[in-house]
Nucleic acid binder design. Structure first.
Lengths: 151, 151
DNA sequence: CTCCATTCATTGGTGCGACCAACATTAACA
DNA sequence: TGTTAATGTTGGTCGCACCAATGAATGGAG
């Protein structure tokens, strides 16, 4: 389960990497559980969101836009296509590519997942005031941006 | 790879769960890489640290003190024992238990890993000022504690 | 003191996320 | 044209978290 109570080695209690991992693990549990209840997982949401944002895309583009490995994109798309949330068709102008399109069902499913996600944010940040939430988001954004640039 | 650049669906860019995951993924990559270079992984460090802190312990106690599932404790201890970092001996006063002890080598290895970890913290928080680091640690600690109590 | 529930170590799974290597096909370019 | 690069796909690996079941051993309730 992993809590931060007695079960955390003392030297780790204040190590940022540990704290981040703890909170991340918790958020991951929340996401996994709620998404599973909706018949989805993280990769699905990311892909659907990218499709909704950028419109029909090749699989390679999807990988780039979501940070998901090409090979994992294949697997996740198979799952999404099996559920009719997404459609794959060959790109006539480049026969290497598939054009992946969001279906109406996929769109609907994405909205669901968005609601689920919003609920999770609230639960995750429950103990923080609105100002503190802003602070946290700001700090994390800076960390993320910094490390994103670095590679 | 996963950066926060163009490759992040817009609706996720400001979702705390996403940010936390991004930063966590980055920290995880750092930890995994550096620990692997030292021949270890996260579970190893946690177990060694718990042993150093609480002294010789049963495997169940180790699981409790580290938040690692009992079954995973077994596997990780096998690896540590194979490297002579840890020793398993039957508890004479309770024959169900093993008493796990940190060896001198284990102690040395733990110190190494501690240095590695310290370096990672610096790198992870590089873009933040000392005050901001305190802020972040404080906020994360509150989140971790909150969610730890809740279960 | 006996029976039952609990604890313990262990085995063997599952799932998710993140990676990597290799391959055939197709495009782009020098 | 010949070579380099991109694309989709297959088939792995690893780390972390978690679950179910089992046999051995213990402790507590009656």
């Amino acid at each position: 389960m992993m809590t931060a109570d007695a079960r955390t080695p003392e030297r780790l209690r204040h190590a940022p990497s540990w704290l981040i991992n703890l909170v991340s693990a918790h958020s991951h549990r929340l996401v996994a559980a709620r998404f599973a209840a909706a018949g989805a997982r993280g990769y699905h949401f990311r892909l659907l969101a990218a499709l909704d944002e950028h419109g029909p895309s090749s699989q390679a583009a999807l990988g780039r836009n979501t940070g998901i490995d090409r090979s994992d994109v294949v697997a996740a798309l198979n799952e999404l296509a099996a559920k009719g949330l997404v459609e794959r068709s060959p790109d006539p102008s480049d026969r290497r590519r598939n054009i992946v399109t969001l279906t109406a069902d996929g769109s609907r499913h994405l909205s669901e997942l968005e609601k689920v996600l919003a609920g999770i944010q609230d639960e995750l940040l429950a103990p923080l005031s609105p100002e503190e939430r802003e602070q946290l988001i700001g700090l994390l954004t800076r960390l993320a941006d910094h490390h994103a640039k670095a590679r």
